[in-house]
Design a protein around this nucleic acid. Structure first.
Lengths: 420, 420
DNA sequence: AGACTAATTTTAAGTCGCAAACTAAGGTCC
DNA sequence: GGACCTTAGTTTGCGACTTAAAATTAGTCT
């Protein structure tokens, strides 16, 4: 409630966290390099890493010559220290994957699933998590937590509340449902799927190294994860980033959200196909969205109509991206989601040109537009990062035995910001 | 360059900053209340405030009974400890105002000015600052710094670079120009005017108490200050928040930025009047924009055309606001700028209705839409907060004698301030 | 083996915030 | 008016922390 920031102990925790995070992200490093990178004195690095090694969080990983002196001993995060589970609740099925602490996948499970009651999904999640832990053969006690990415907005609070209209969920307390369907008490972290995917791209994909990034997620619908100052931006109630439902054509096409002229109604797969259908004046061959869009793109070289629809899509998308550029002034825009990748692969030049036409010169000059680098597992990987982020953040403080007050404070990795 | 976070000394600075900021924003407080609010122990509060009092930053301010015990001694920031200057560089003139540390205005100066060369403006700023300090009769040595709000984007870096197309500035290093035109070496802080006005609303106006706010600035043009997690959001190169140039009508009206369909072309004063002109099919009576818009609003009850133009304006504006709501998920939207206030006063219901129609239900339910509370001095007040924010931030560390390495690190000042 | 170099660890300060004990300042009750 | 509360603020003693400097370790080079 208050500014809160205090004691000398926080310092230690902070430094533990800094060092652990540095090791996590910047690979094996010697104590010496850690000292340079963190700004901490060699003595402190030695002291703190010693503790981390004692705790089993960090292990030595060979050494490296240093011309003519004592070789540096490399340290790295111990991948086997703990395991995490990532769950991707999609519109057509759920994926459950288990990773070690380095986010290497050890086991995975896939369930097709037509939209079902929250309770049914929760119980499927609970049993699948159990199964995947068993399949990987890791001791249950090493499981740090379970991250769950869902296709809707997630209101973070004492307990996460999910609103996911596309699968018919409204006000679902998924955390509670899963917890009560599950025998183990692993901490649960529920988050919007676009945000988990964005976090995955930030940690391991096209977002690495940047601090201000927007990761667009274009599939059947359209979403985005906005990364500001290095962290996923959530806003007051965690529903920030609903890019798909920003108005781009005032009074335009109806969107499934009920409003008119949303970006999603133009560049979401459903919107693209619908516009194509109208342009052709007749129905499309049957097939799922994904292959139909692929067919549309294939047809472009031969079909004027297909080409025009794609061209227009690139225009709308560029304008939508320009809005992000003007509002957020990011360094980088990452196009993700299956439709985003498909469009990006064939229309990137046009998209960039349209962005340029709609963005202000100065912020436009700062950005690069790239394609996402992670595959279809990105949402699950990103979900699995949630417990890891919590670990790094609280620096695996041994005094806080790993599963404290549920996911509550996960919200924002509480880096301090500032006013001006 | 690295995560940086260290020493035991930072703790002290941090706590000094927390206490000083708490006193600044939450008025006179006793040590006891400070202890509760900051989470620090009474001992530490006593210790740190003792230091602050010794340094002259804080003074006692009477006492208050505490039923049946020792009365509490109130502490407050010493308004006379330092002074700050705020400069509002507008499109038609500059305002220069001097404040004490509590941001009470002590003197002000106004110069009409047609768009002029940067050097001329810089020299006018330099001399006016000198004049206003002299007029207030405060010793030059107590001037903490000079904040300057400009009507364009400001790229923060080693030195601030201003791009302000509406006054013909492109790549102007205003800081350097003012510094060389000035004999004193007061630290300079250059920032976009919409952002300084936003900061003023956050500190003293409609934004108080909230952490996620968008302060819209609607005048001749359209801008916004986006406050995320309590701080004004700048993005990678400080040009974030260009709301006016987000596309709201794909392929729509040409905007002075060169693109089509920008929000500014519809709800900026110029855009409104131009649409009205077109709707009436003939010229408007002469007059400045501000009075012409007022006349338009007055005419609405009698003129169908005027009413329709305003109604449409509310619609566009609502859609623009909804985009902010969906993307940023703020708690509050503040309408500012003379046109924003005028529209808000007469069309707020319609604007709210349009916002509701375009926003997603969940984030919409979180917001309140309010009018700005500060008058035409807001930009200057906000500019003056910049040196104050720097003071609060570095906690007036006595070791850093108040005017150190020029404003350099103001850019993305690196640390926490406070919940504001 | 001895000299040298560079990475870590140990040692000796010096800082900091906190809990507990203590002092200050006023009120209540008889 | 004095014994006794109550609340605010200060002092003291301590444990925790980081650091600079000195010491140690582990190789390379001759």
């Amino acid at each position: 409630m208050a500014p809160k920031r205090t004691t000398v102990r926080d310092l230690r925790r902070q430094n533990r966290s800094t060092l652990l995070s540095t090791l996590f992200f910047d690979g094996p490093l010697s104590r010496y390099e850690l000292s340079r990178l963190s700004g901490l004195s060699a003595a402190t690095v030695s002291n703190v890493t010693g503790e981390l090694v004692d705790d089993g969080l960090v292990v030595e990983a060979g050494s490296v010559d240093s011309d003519g002196g004592r070789p540096r001993v490399l340290l790295r995060v111990n991948p086997a220290f703990a395991h995490v589970v990532g769950v991707d609740v999609g519109e057509t099925g759920i994926k459950v994957e288990l990773f070690d602490l380095a986010l290497t996948q050890l086991a995975a499970l896939d369930h097709a699933l037509s939209p079902s009651s929250p309770a049914a999904v929760a119980s499927l999640i609970a049993s699948s998590v159990r199964d995947v832990v068993a399949a990987a053969g890791v001791p249950a006690s090493t499981v740090l937590g379970v991250g769950i990415g869902v296709p809707g907005t997630v209101e973070q609070g004492a307990t996460a509340v999910v609103h996911a209209p596309t699968i018919g969920w409204d006000g679902v307390r998924l955390e509670e449902l899963v917890a009560s369907a599950s025998s183990s008490a692993w901490p649960l972290y529920v988050e919007n799927g676009a945000k988990t995917q964005g976090q995955a791209e930030m940690w391991f994909g096209a977002g690495r190294g940047a601090k201000h990034v927007v990761i667009a997620l274009i599939g059947s619908g359209v979403g985005a994860a906005v990364v500001t100052d290095g962290g996923v931006y959530r806003g007051a109630t965690s529903s920030a980033g609903e890019w798909g439902h920003t108005t781009i054509v005032y009074g335009g096409r109806p969107c499934r959200c009920g409003a008119l002229g949303c970006l999603e109604a133009y560049v979401g797969a459903e919107g693209i196909l619908d516009r194509y259908r109208k342009a052709r004046g007749r129905e499309l061959p049957a097939g799922d969205e994904q292959s139909t869009v692929a067919a549309l793109i294939d047809a472009a070289p031969r079909s004027k109509t297909a080409a025009r629809v794609l061209e227009e899509t690139a225009g709308y998308l560029g304008a939508g991206i320009a809005n992000l550029v003007n509002l957020f002034n990011p360094e980088r825009i990452v196009l993700g989601g299956w439709a985003g990748l498909a469009l990006g692969a064939h229309q990137l030049d046009r998209i960039v040109a349209a962005t340029r036409a709609h963005a202000l010169r100065h912020p436009y000059e700062q950005i690069s537009i790239e394609l996402g680098r992670l595959g279809p597992d990105a949402v699950a990987v990103g979900a699995a990062t949630l417990p890891v982020a919590a670990l790094l953040d609280r620096a695996a403080d041994p005094r806080k035995p790993s599963a404290p007050e549920l996911s509550v404070e996960l919200g924002v990795p509480d880096r301090r910001t500032r006013a001006f």
